[in-house]
């Protein structure tokens, strides 16, 4: 697979911070892959997402850089879709769902208002919202958190970008909804042959569908490789710790005795 983006020696420091948010990152993002960026708070994983999307705040000091195969950085909304943790923050409360989902496509693909609305309804159907025509006329506050995240995905994909960045897109959702959204993202990205950068603190969630993983800690890239290889034979001590601290239903409980 060819590299969609070559990241070389990328460092990012925020004004006033004593340590850099990212420190000399070398990483290739390959066209069409599902790459999971895994890290705990303060690992720099969201800073990487912002750097890729050109969304770093003013005043951030950047060294090194990114070389895009296309020759120029992707245009957010057109070449690059973005789904954040909190869909409420990325949706405008006073616009209808249909207007927001169609907005990017209208701007970037030159659609008329009517065409954009019809595309929006089509996208809402793609993200498996029941009664998409009705949802298109609704406002964000009328939907549940899981439904809003589906809307955010529909909006991010409406202009048919080649790459999607999902930054903790399921962490604010309950587990049942999280499982549904992850399955949805996986299906949509596969069907469209898109590149997915899936940013998460949950190594198990990533292990279910990512082709490759990149483990971040305190601004550094600790380890990267095919998901299967890294999970079966982690090279870095930190990766081993992450795997060991994972808890699922097969993990022995912490309580020692039956109910008192």
């Amino acid at each position: 697979m060819t590299a969609l983006c070559e990241i070389r020696g990328l460092s990012v420091a925020y004004p006033g911070a004593s340590v850099p948010a990212l420190d000399g990152i070398d990483l290739d993002i390959r066209a069409g892959e599902r790459l999971a960026v895994i890290g705990e708070s303060g690992s720099g994983k969201s800073t990487l997402a912002c750097a890729l999307a050109g969304l770093l705040p003013d005043g951030a000091r950047v060294e090194g850089g990114m070389r895009w195969a296309a020759g120029s950085p992707p245009r957010p909304g057109r070449d690059l879709g973005f789904v954040f943790q909190d869909p409420a923050a990325s949706l405008n409360p006073v616009l209808t769902i249909g207007e927001q989902v169609g907005e990017g496509a209208r701007r970037h693909l030159g659609l008329s208002r009517r065409q954009a609305l019809s595309l929006a309804v089509e996208m809402l159907e793609k993200v498996r919202l029941p009664d998409p025509g009705k949802v298109a006329k609704a406002f964000p506050h009328q939907l549940s958190g899981g439904q809003r995240q589906r809307v955010a995905i529909a909006a991010a994909l409406a202009a048919k970008p080649g790459m999607l960045i999902a930054d903790e897109a399921t962490s604010a959702l309950d587990m049942v909804v999280q499982a549904e959204i992850v399955a949805l993202l996986d299906d949509l990205v596969r069907a469209a042959g898109m590149t997915l950068l899936f940013i998460t603190h949950d190594i198990a969630l990533a292990s279910g569908f990512a082709d490759r993983v990149a483990i971040f800690r305190k601004g550094a890239l600790v380890e990267t490789g095919p998901t299967r290889t890294v999970l079966a034979a982690p090279a870095a001590a930190y990766t081993k710790t992450l795997i060991a601290s994972h808890r699922d239903l097969a993990t022995p409980p912490l309580i020692h005795e039956a109910a008192p």
């Binding site: 499982a179 949950d202 699922d248 239903l249």
Partner: peptide
Amino acid sequence: VIADPQSPAARALVRAVPRLVIE
């Protein structure tokens, strides 16, 4: 409840827990 969930809601909760896929 975890080994043998009876209700659809409990089954959905059990299914939703991400498992570490190590092959």
